[in-house]
Design a protein around this nucleic acid. Sequence first.
DNA 1: GCGGCAATCCCCCGAAAGGATGATTTGCGT
DNA 2: ACGCAAATCATCCTTTCGGGGGATTGCCGC
Lengths: 137, 137
Amino acid sequence: MGKRVLLYGALLAAGTLLLQWLDYQRLVRSHIGDLYIFLIAGGFLALGVWLGVRGIARPAPRAFDGNPQAVAALGLSPRELEVLDELLAGRSNQEIADKLGVSLNTVKTHVARLLEKLRAKRRGDAVARARELGIVK
Amino acid sequence: MGKRVLLYGALLAAGTLLLQWLDYQRLVRSHIGDLYIFLIAGGFLALGVWLGVRGIARPAPRAFDGNPQAVAALGLSPRELEVLDELLAGRSNQEIADKLGVSLNTVKTHVARLLEKLRAKRRGDAVARARELGIVK
DNA sequence: GCGGCAATCCCCCGAAAGGATGATTTGCGT
DNA sequence: ACGCAAATCATCCTTTCGGGGGATTGCCGC
């Protein structure tokens, strides 16, 4: 997969150079122009990464897990299941917040509800319970 | 959350407009310049999205199994393994202390060493790591 | 007998987690 | 239109964790 990154980057670079050459006189006349381009590229790259991480990558992973019956019985919401997955991975509240694109407080709320519904006192408890109940593999 | 996307976009747009204004004479002289910028922005945006999706959505490749003795490789002591089992069960340090008949401080020491050896920052991390490494089922 | 190591315990202190509540927004069903 | 549940963010407060130290005991190997 690393190859495709490089390929993509190479194509982009090639296109950029081509356009730059075509428009050479106007655009490379000053360094300010270059800086401008650089900022645009960097800004949109960052925006893209951000969007990709939270906008695109989020809905996908929540396909399914083992036991819909147990989930329904416990009344776990979809969002709570996402948080549960993160707990399974041993992540901190802050990390979960960043990954899901919500605030720390929101994560704490979700976790608190998970603890209630799973009748667990700690997040580690919740993980153990979830495994027992077959909610996760 | 949609608000933050808009906010981000708005800030970026504002910055862009500012720079464009500052560099007005040079860059807005022709439409070709605009097209150039647009392509750069779009290209890097796409690249960013792609990278973001790839970077996050990939599931960690399971290394090796080895419930046999990857333990030896990590240098885990017998007592540490006992504590690890308790961590698996989602118990608190105090509960572990009571169960193993040692003081809270001792448990904390064992847990701290486990975190080091498993290269984990949190106990939940340690649990996830232990599973990856096949130390436990 | 000395060095190393596992196991035990202690203290301090900042960071993370958890409990209790309240509030707002949005979508959904009647 | 109204009520409800889910999701979001918040504040205050307590408990638990985790990271620095440091220290003692007992065992094993050389």
